Amino acid sequence: MSTPLILVDELCRLITDATGELILEAKTGPSRPPSVIPGFLDDDEPKPGKPPEEKAVPFVLVRFRSGEDTEQAGMATVRLIATTYSKHGQGWRDPMNVLERIRQAILTHRPLVRQFDLQLPIKWDMPEEQPWPYWIAWMTTSWTIGRPILTEMEDTMYGENIYYR
């Protein structure tokens, strides 16, 4: 499995634990913690202005954004998108509360599973225009990730073994 995919999956586990006791209003059904979803909603198309799937709200999307390898390190950028529901004018507080719980969790669990090291700064943002009654905010994080290293042992497929460090 790809190292960025492992990072996304580990972040999903951490965020599920960090937000599990946070009870938020849902448009349908009882109030509940946010669902944590890797990538996109199942029937989501990444189009600006498309309203979220009502049955999924509240949720946090854990979305890989970009990667980069330099001589010093491999890096991955992951965006965490919190979406909540509230008809109240102070509903903007809900996604910020979700992001704060996540922020505290990732800052206190470094490195993540002894494999991914959070690189500061963490950036978070909330657009001024909100798709009321939905409220959205996101956090952008950068992580060092393992890079392949070659060994002298031979692999049957490529003639070399690749290990991550």
Rank of each mutant, 00 (worst) to 15 (best):
P121K: 11
E100L: 12
T151G: 12
Q119T: 08
T28I: 13
E129I: 13
S35A: 14
T108K: 05
V36I: 14
R32T: 09
L61W: 02
R65L: 08
P133Q: 03
P127T: 04
L118E: 08
G159H: 07
L5P: 00
P148F: 13
Q115T: 15
L150W: 04
W138A: 05
G91E: 02
S35E: 10
V8Y: 00
L22W: 00
Y163D: 03
P4A: 07
G89F: 02
G29Q: 12
G49L: 12
E129Q: 14
I136H: 04
G159P: 06
Q90A: 14
Y85S: 01
G67Q: 07
P4H: 03
E100P: 02
K55S: 13
I136T: 12
K123N: 12
S2A: 14
P95H: 09
E53S: 14
P48Q: 10
M153K: 13
P121I: 06
F116M: 10
L99V: 08
E53L: 10
F40E: 11
S142D: 06
N97R: 15
T156P: 09
E152K: 14
P58H: 03
S86W: 05
T144F: 06
E68H: 12
P34Y: 11
N161T: 06
T77I: 10
I81N: 00
L14M: 09
E45N: 08
G20R: 11
A82G: 04
A105S: 13
K55P: 02
I136Q: 06
K50Y: 06
T141G: 00
L24H: 05
G39I: 08
A137I: 01
V98D: 03
S31L: 07
M75D: 01
A105N: 05
E128N: 09
W124E: 15
Y163M: 09
H88S: 14
L107Q: 15
P48W: 05
K55W: 05
D94H: 04
P127G: 05
A76P: 07
M157E: 15
I81D: 00
G67T: 02
Y134C: 04
E54N: 11
R32E: 10
Y163W: 15
E10L: 09
L80M: 08
R103F: 09
V78L: 01
D9M: 06
M96S: 04
P51H: 07
K50P: 02
T19H: 07
T3V: 15
T77R: 11
F59S: 03
L120P: 01
L7E: 00
W132P: 00
D42Y: 09
I149E: 12
P58R: 04
I162W: 14
T28S: 13
S35I: 03
D155T: 07
R13G: 12
P111W: 09
L41E: 05
D94I: 01
F64A: 08
D155W: 05
K47A: 15
E160Q: 15
R147S: 08
W132N: 08
Q130V: 06
L107G: 03
Q72K: 14
D42K: 10
R101V: 06
